[in-house]
């Protein structure tokens, strides 16, 4: 399974100093993404990825080792992004 940006809506986003705000024109809601979620969002902007690839990618970007703690944090952040409707999980 891989994570993708939601394609059923038009997203606008802006980033400043590692934090991102995202506007979702389907729900008319604006979301604040803290640095880890912002990094995941940015990574998925470049390409879809599974959780392992996201852990590697954000670990490299944020200078964190890709250990279990980071994996748990990435899993929690992707769950929040998914709940907000900004990303979806689809078969690879």
């Amino acid at each position: 399974m891989r994570w993708h940006l939601a394609s059923d809506r038009k997203l606008l986003w802006r980033s400043w100093d590692g934090e991102t705000v995202v506007y979702d024109d389907l729900s008319d809601e604006t979301h604040y993404l803290e640095p880890l979620a912002a990094e995941i969002f940015e990574s998925l902007l470049a390409r879809a990825a599974d959780t392992d690839a996201l852990v590697e990618s954000v670990g490299t970007s944020l200078g964190l080792s890709p250990d279990q703690e980071l994996r748990r944090a990435v899993a929690a952040a992707t769950a929040h992004l998914c709940q907000a409707g900004l990303i979806v999980e689809r078969p690879a």
Binding site: R14, S15, W16, D17, E19, T20, V21, T30, Y32, L33
Partner: peptide, 11 residues
């Protein structure tokens, strides 16, 4: 204040 926080406080 971080710009993202300021964005939210303005909105």
């Amino acid at each position: 204040v971080s710009k993202a926080c300021a964005f939210f406080m303005i909105s």
